[in-house]
Deep mutational scan, measured.
Amino acid sequence: LVRYRTISKIPQITLNFVDLKGDPFLASPTSDREIIAPKIKERTHNVTEKVTQVLSLGADVLPEYKLQAPRIHRWTILHYSPFKAVWDWLILLLVIYTAVFTPYSAAFLLKETEEGPPATECGYACQPLAVVDLIVDIMFIVDILINFRTTYVNANEEVVSHPGRIAVHYFKGWFLIDMVAAIPFDLLIFGSGSEELIGLLKTARLLRLVRVARKLDRYSEYGAAVLFLLMCTFALIAHWLACIWYAIGNMEQPHMDSRIGWLHNLGDQIGKPYNSSGLGGPSIKDKYVTALYFTFSSLTSVGFGNVSPNTNSEKIFSICVMLIGSLMYASIFGNVSAIIQRLYSGTARYHTQMLRVREFIRFHQIPNPLRQRLEEYFQHAWSYTNGIDMNAVLKGFPECLQADICLHLNRSLLQHCKPFRGATKGCLRALAMKFKTTHAPPGDTLVHAGDLLTALYFISRGSIEILRGDVVVAILGKNDIFGEPLNLYARPGKSNGDVRALTYCDLHKIHR
């Protein structure tokens, strides 16, 4: 019993810090008490220290592992850092350059016999395009090294910054494609005289377009951006097909006994025919423009016929181009109408809503002055909100995010209106959640004399007048207030005048 009563005193000691020596009952000389009392004092002292730490809000209350900052290894790049964003855009520009100039170089340097010394005699450094290609190869190699040090988000939505895990993730992902696209074939085969082989191998750079397509997928929600990307894709495919079309004609031209190829026909049409040795002929500019003209006309199913396939190889390629053109029509131009419709969806919704308003007016036989006010209010409210119901949009977000959005939407009023000066951010967040926005066209009466005042109004834009009878008592403008002081009276009061809008007004109100 003594032991039980001794232990039962522990909660009292913990909360009230009572010393055991003052209790005459606990001072009985028993061996059990002498053993338990020192333990009680020690526990009391420890609990006292913990309570003191909690009340003082000291940093040592938290466990040590929670006080440590997340460790980022040296030379690790955050995937959302500004440097990584700028670097990704730079790589994107280099990939676009590669997609345009690599097929052009591979096709127009394929057994090209233009006048001038061969590239091997001039030297590697004197070729501007080769120098640019070398810079692109170096940048792609540097990009691989950067990807080995860039964080990523795993399946659990955690940012991984450990170098080993980053390397394994990159090896399992895009490393092989990036490595093949970054191989400097110019340096590996330079001086061997195989410019045709170098041009063909350099087309491996186009593998990076797969990554670019995935990154550009984030802009699919913007109709104008999608339309622009589709047109660029169409032009890029036409450019690639033009390079292939020229390569076919250029390879067949020296081996044909009869002059029936499209390059021969082009030379005869523009007065620059090929001679018996295969030299001469149109310039590279004429060849490229004509090839691009043929691919565009074939892809769009126009086909004027002034550039036509004559050999079997050219006919087979033309059939493939027609098939590609039909697929592009289905996948690209078939979506253009939907994209344009999405661009004008706001206008369509406006006309639909206006039609419903006019049908309501016609069905209920609203008189002319009231009908005009109804239409003007709808037009003004639509121009202010673009038909978007803010309350319906915010309803799907958590309250903390709703408060931040409301604070942002009402920031101008909260910053410049005098009653809100000096208020804490928590108070402003709470008030912003209570605001209701209303609009009024010129001549609209917001409050009639004798109406119950259940709200306090803040003028965000425009001006109003307060009338008693036919006498203008006051004219209020931006950041002015009218209405009933909230919670100042037990019952809502009545208006002693009319409140009429002089201009288009936007008002925020808080109800009782």
Rank of each mutant, 00 (worst) to 15 (best):
Y219G: 03
L207T: 13
A167W: 01
R349Q: 04
P282M: 03
L236F: 01
A423F: 04
G123C: 01
P163M: 05
K202Y: 01
S308K: 01
V180Q: 01
L323D: 01
G325L: 01
L241S: 01
L299W: 01
T300V: 01
E195V: 14
R214W: 04
G164D: 05
S276Q: 11
L343G: 08
A432R: 01
I177V: 14
E376Y: 09
C243Y: 01
G173K: 04
C126L: 02
M251A: 13
F185E: 01
F171D: 01
Y65L: 07
E375N: 08
T295V: 13
Q415W: 05
E114Y: 12
A449S: 14
A235P: 01
F360D: 01
A155V: 11
V132Q: 01
A381D: 14
G199A: 11
Y170M: 01
K215V: 03
F333C: 04
S313I: 14
R71K: 15
K287A: 13
F397N: 01
L241H: 01
C406A: 14
L323M: 15
Y384S: 10
L413H: 01
A167S: 04
H364D: 03
I388T: 06
T385F: 04
L446D: 01
F108V: 01
M433N: 01
G334F: 02
L227P: 03
D178K: 01
T438Q: 13
W89C: 03
P118Q: 15
R259Y: 08
S105M: 07
T203Y: 01
L263S: 01
R342C: 04
A330D: 04
A403R: 04
T290I: 01
R429F: 01
R208P: 03
L370P: 03
T352V: 08
E376N: 13
I135K: 01
N391K: 05
I388D: 13
Y384T: 06
P128Q: 03
A204I: 05
H79S: 01
Y124C: 01
A235I: 11
M179W: 08
T437W: 11
I166A: 03
L200I: 05
K272V: 01
Q68W: 04
A392P: 03
K425W: 01
A392N: 07
P369S: 07
A392F: 04
I361N: 01
H416P: 01
S81A: 12
G164C: 09
A348P: 08
V210E: 08
A181I: 01
F83C: 12
E314M: 01
E376L: 11
S345Q: 13
P128A: 11
T203I: 11
R218Y: 08
K436C: 06
M328T: 05
A225N: 05
L327F: 01
K111N: 04
D143F: 01
F108G: 05
L446I: 14
N306P: 01
N312K: 01
N156S: 13
Y274K: 01
A348V: 13
L206W: 01
T437F: 12
A449E: 10
M139I: 03
G281S: 01
Y350H: 04
A225T: 05
T445Y: 12
F175C: 04
I146L: 07
T113C: 01
N265D: 12
V95P: 01
D286T: 01
E359H: 04
P369L: 03
G261T: 03
P282H: 05
N410R: 11
K418G: 09
F296N: 01
I248L: 03
L370H: 01
A181S: 11
F108M: 08
